[in-house]
Design a protein around this nucleic acid. Structure first.
Lengths: 306, 306
DNA sequence: CAATTTCATCGATTTTTTCGATTGAAATTT
DNA sequence: AAATTTCAATCGAAAAAATCGATGAAATTG
């Protein structure tokens, strides 16, 4: 005889709430039901799962084993029903979208309203994290897709580019001879400030400008664009700002100088598991994101003037 | 609401037997019960899992998904109850032991009676396969331990040596000047026959004798010791025979010539997953195997004379 | 085309699950 | 130390479910 999923749920709730009463109400049953369920589980397995020698609700070592396996099973069971629901309407229900920090705050104002309009039944959950961790989450099934910057090695995952994003140079006002455009070589005359390691923006900026890490100013470790911009604002050096960030108003009060052809760029794209939640609707979502990132400019301008 | 394990069992049986009636009896229920169970599952998920447009019992693509996840869940549920049973008596119940082909037939006559006596409540299942595949099975949890030859790289697995096994040279009668012992160098004067690639015995023999693969006779691909011995018997060359095999009577009718010091050897040992079935009783099992492999000699002699 | 096999369906029955109330034991408050 | 509160276990009754046996409809076989 096999243990029942319901019993494993009880055990799970018990671990989480450390109390029969609270666990019971979390499971929407009475305490007696949960109590009986646990007892049944123990009878079935022939082993106690909770340690009754001590006052607190504590699992036996074996109980911990059961709990661990049980959690995995419950997760898998949940995945089944989720797949079923997605099949009923691929554009409804939760969609967990990961976005890297150098895109998220500047793209969200565009994404949120567009998704709300195009996919009204979809609940969008945003996970902001570095590329490496987003890909990890994709593999784990913790997120369904990742909005990130390319090139980036994504093995066993599908991906598609949405748009090319230009970089502009940002520098404190008056630090540079007034010029309308600049060339890549002009960077050599300044201290180039970049984000700390781990941010793909750092790597893409280095690559786009054919800079070596040594040519960047390493004393400060900025872990976010706003921090980086503050440094620039105080005259510590120059930096490369992605278009979207620059247009969001982040560069207000700075000189934002576009590059002459060929301007340095990075690619913005979507990445997802071929067998995952997105699979059936990747085209639709790509279109929506494409629209989100272009309407973004209008929104950005609105924000800037406000 | 979550699908019930029972329903997933039904689906599983249905896939396996391709018939409601047969699946039902495999589950020890009537066909109507199974039918209702499947229907319930489909109602719960809001999606059909079996394709009713065609006559044969066929799963919908979604059904295949459910089946796959369901199987994993059932396996895990089974693992839970198995762990519970093992906890009740670690020396009772099934123990799946893998053994490599160059050990199995010669060690089993020793192992089986010893295990029967020491662990009367244990059901021993023997899986004979090459080392690489046994290790794979260990990782998958398909077997609990592997009796194999060392050295062999076993990552993430625990292992212990049981005994050193000497090799003896085997050659057709009269092909070699009558000598009581031989040296490793004497091998150079003969065609050395070994098992085909994949058998660790091949590698260990090569290593033990400091032979290069080129010095062996490659025209024949023997995939078992008995075949190899037949070649030797017909005068194709000489081979290295593990002690246990030689004593089992396999070398009857051949000249079996022991090596002078240092005799070539291989190590026989046990390998298991640290978290696995064996963990709590590895010492006991090691002792039993050690006894099995030494009593083996007595038994082998008995067999030889018979 | 008759016989048989196969799956779906229905009502009856058994089994399981859940609840509400109660108890006893431990912890907390008075 | 007594009273109160909290907590888990237990019991009988009620509700829910799983299962069975019988029957029907469709397809397959002989």
């Amino acid at each position: 005889m096999l243990p029942k999923l319901r019993q494993l749920e009880y055990l799970n709730a018990l671990v989480e709430h450390r109390s029969f009463v609270r666990a019971a109400e979390a499971c929407f049953v009475t305490q007696s039901t949960l109590s009986a369920g646990i007892k049944e589980l123990e009878e079935l397995l022939g082993q106690p799962v909770i340690d009754r020698s001590i006052k607190k609700v504590t699992l036996t070592p074996f109980g911990q084993d059961v709990h661990k396996d049980g959690q995995a099973m419950l997760k898998q069971a949940g995945a089944i029903v989720e797949k079923a629901q997605i099949l009923k309407d691929p554009l409804a229900g939760p969609l967990r979208l990961g976005i890297i920090p150098t895109i998220a705050p500047y793209a969200l104002p565009g994404i949120l309203p567009v998704f709300e309009e195009l996919f009204p039944k979809m609940e969008l959950h945003i996970h902001e994290d570095l590329t490496a961790r987003l890909l990890e989450s994709l593999h784990n099934g913790e997120i369904d897709a990742a909005l990130m910057a390319f090139p980036y090695p994504v093995k066993n995952l599908q991906s598609a580019i949405i748009k090319k994003e230009r970089f502009v140079a940002a520098i404190a006002k008056g630090q540079m001879m007034a010029q309308k455009t600049m060339k890549l070589n002009d960077l050599k005359n300044h201290k180039v400030l970049l984000l700390e390691d781990g941010h793909c923006l750092r790597d893409h900026a280095l690559a786009a400008c054919a800079l070596s890490p040594k040519e960047t100013w390493q004393t400060f470790r900025a872990s976010s664009l706003p921090s980086l911009i503050e440094m620039v604002r105080h005259g510590y050096g120059i930096t490369l700002l992605p278009d979207m960030a620059a247009e969001s108003g982040l560069g207000n009060g700075l000189d934002l100088i576009p590059f002459e052809y060929p301007a340095p760029t990075r690619d913005i794209g979507l990445c997802w598991r071929p067998s995952g939640r997105i699979h059936a609707i990747s085209d639709t979502v790509m279109e929506a994101l494409s629209e989100s990132l272009s309407t973004h400019e209008a929104i950005a301008n609105r924000l800037k003037s406000a």
